[in-house]
């Protein structure tokens, strides 16, 4: 078992949310796509190994 005695003595598990409620971001809205600051995104794209997909192999899953 991976349970420690200390963990077992903790208070009851707190609910994630006491009641079902709407998403924290509010209801749906009409699309309003503003151009975001993409400087960090471009850095991320530049860090991507262009051969990553060529080497990428996975076993079949379900």
């Amino acid at each position: 078992m991976m349970i420690s005695g200390e963990e077992r003595r903790q208070a009851p598990v707190a609910p994630v949310s006491p009641v079902r409620k709407e998403g924290d971001g509010g209801g749906p809205s009409e699309p309003d796509v503003k151009r975001p600051d993409t400087s960090d995104l471009l850095k991320r794209m530049r860090r991507v190994d262009p051969d990553a997909a060529r080497r990428y192999r996975q076993r079949s899953g379900q």
Partner: peptide
Amino acid sequence: YGLEEAGAMRRLVTDSRVDAAVSCPPSD
């Protein structure tokens, strides 16, 4: 995540709610 960090993706749940879900089950 880069898009999300740039504010380009709509969120439905807060990071604190995700943090809570890492260790707490749904209550219902």
